Computed example of a mutant assay.
Amino acid sequence: MRFIRYAAAVVVSGLVAAGAQAQGWPEQVRFGGFGQGFGKPYGLAVLAIAQGKGFIADEFKGTPVKLSFEYFTGTGPAINEAIANKRLDFAQYGSLPNIVGRANGLPTRIVTSYGYTTIFGVARPDLPVKSFKDLKGRRVAVAKGTVLHWAFLKALEGNGLTLRDVTLLDLATADQLAALTAGSVDAVIGSSVLLSLRDKGLAKVFYSSHDIGPKAAGFGAITVTESFEQRYPEATQRVVRGLVRAAEWLGHEENREEALQIWTRSGVPYQALRDEYAGVALKDIFNPRIDAFFVSQYRDAVAFSQEQKLIRSGIDLQQWFLPRYVDQALDQLGLQGTWPRRDANGKPLEG
């Protein structure tokens, strides 16, 4: 039944595309995503699955459109720079650089969620660091301007600390690993790649957002530039449909191992990825909906960014989000019941 619905959707989409031919197809669709600092041309989360499994490429069969994927060592700030320089059409990256870019006039629109990222805090094994409170007076490394930076500031606030209580060092992922190993920093806040140090006995984990829940995790979006979306709405729809298909594939437990193997291409060790997602349903993590929960996360992050003086002005979320592309993809693919809409607290809505 799902195949029949999808086949019908492709026919309808083809008719829409005929109208779009007056505008022409883009010669190329350029994707950017967060990398892990190892110089690998592969990434993580939904975009890596959509690339690795060919879901987006399938959507453009029979068209002259070429696809390119780039994963940035500098993560969010580097992606914002690439968008500003008109090097990208779509980008998958964290909420804080999303927000900073938009607040500074970057012409992006949010078309879907990429899910959420587990945040880890690790410290040198010889130090008595058991919680964020124990970071007072310590040297802490984090990649500034990223969603990890946002999560770090939130966790400090939740433990009664401020930036004045720590010495913050702005380091990329690969440099963080080297600095902690050398003892030049006391702790690092980052992603699951840090677990490789734990496995070597070079660090101990004192914090995981997985223990608290989605509200504490890092989150972000996949954006499209305003100029691309306005000129190529059908191409935009096809990209989002490919991303939704990737999220749906991730939701099947039998695909977990293959997904982990695809993500290891980024340079993150398999065991670290396995530990990050142990005991959690990938279907829940990679929910593509722009619903009340997703909007509330961004509303909170925008307010917090203003409080922390990371941005000067607020953002009109209604103008920023474009939920219609995900909604239409769910209808076309017969997946409306796959992910229930959530309220602002993340609870599924009935009906």
Score class of each variant (00 low, 15 high):
Ala7Glu: 00
Val12His: 07
Leu15Gln: 04
Leu15Met: 15
Ala18Asp: 01
Ala18Arg: 05
Gln21Leu: 15
Gln21Ile: 14
Gln23Phe: 06
Trp25Tyr: 12
Gln28Thr: 06
Gln28Asp: 05
Gly35Ala: 05
Tyr42Thr: 03
Ala45Ile: 09
Gln51Arg: 14
Gly52Asn: 03
Gly52Asp: 04
Gly54Cys: 09
Ala57Gly: 04
Ala57Trp: 02
Phe60Lys: 06
Pro64Leu: 05
Glu70Asp: 12
Thr75Val: 15
Ile79Phe: 00
Ala82Phe: 06
Ala84Tyr: 06
Lys86Ile: 02
Phe90Asp: 07
Ser95Tyr: 07
Leu96Pro: 01
Leu96Phe: 03
Pro97Gln: 01
Val100Pro: 11
Ala103Tyr: 06
Ala103Pro: 11
Asn104Lys: 13
Gly105Ser: 11
Pro107His: 06
Thr112Lys: 00
Ile119Ala: 03
Ile119Gly: 01
Phe120Glu: 04
Gly121Ala: 02
Asp126Val: 03
Leu127His: 06
Pro128Cys: 03
Phe132Gln: 05
Phe132Trp: 09
Phe132Ser: 01
Lys133Ser: 13
Asp134Ser: 04
Arg138Cys: 11
Arg138Ala: 07
Ala141Lys: 10
Ala141His: 10
Ala141Glu: 01
Val142Asn: 10
Lys144Cys: 09
Lys144Gly: 06
Gly145Cys: 05
Gly145Lys: 02
Gly145Ala: 07
Leu148Gln: 02
His149Leu: 03
Leu153Tyr: 11
Lys154Ser: 14
Ala155Trp: 00
Asn159Met: 05
Asn159Thr: 05
Leu163His: 04
Leu163Phe: 07
Asp165Trp: 09
Asp165Tyr: 09
Val166Asp: 14
Val166Trp: 02
Val166Gly: 08
Leu168Tyr: 00
Leu169Thr: 02
Asp170Met: 13
Asp170Thr: 09
Ala172Asn: 14
Gln176Asp: 05
Leu177Glu: 12
Ala179Glu: 01
Gly183Arg: 00
Gly183Cys: 06
Asp186Leu: 10
Val188Lys: 14
Ile189Ser: 08
Ser192Ile: 03
Leu194Val: 02
Leu194Pro: 05
Leu195Asn: 12
Ser196Pro: 07
Lys200Thr: 09
Lys200Arg: 12
Ala203Arg: 00
Lys204Pro: 06
Ser208Thr: 15
Ile212Ser: 05
Ile212Pro: 02
Gly213Asn: 00
Lys215Gln: 15
Ala216Tyr: 05
Ala216Leu: 03
Phe219Asn: 07
Gly220Val: 04
Phe228Asn: 09
Gln230Ile: 01
Pro233Thr: 08
Glu234Ser: 12
Ala235Asp: 10
Thr236Ser: 15
Glu248Val: 10
His252Ala: 11
Asn255Tyr: 08
Arg256Leu: 07
Arg256Ile: 12
Glu257Gln: 10
Ala259Leu: 04
Leu260Ile: 06
Ile262Trp: 09
Arg265Lys: 13
Val268Phe: 09
Val268Trp: 04
Tyr277Met: 12
Lys283Gln: 13
Asp284Gln: 04
Asn287Val: 09
Ile290Gly: 08
Ile290Val: 15
Gln297Arg: 14
Gln297Glu: 10
Tyr298Val: 11
Tyr298Leu: 14
Arg299Asn: 04
Gln306Pro: 03
Gly314Asn: 15
Gln319His: 05
Phe321Ile: 01
Arg324Val: 10
Tyr325Val: 08
Val326Gly: 01
Asp331Trp: 07
Trp339Ser: 00
Pro340Phe: 12
Arg341His: 08
Arg342Asp: 11
Pro348Phe: 08
Glu350Tyr: 11
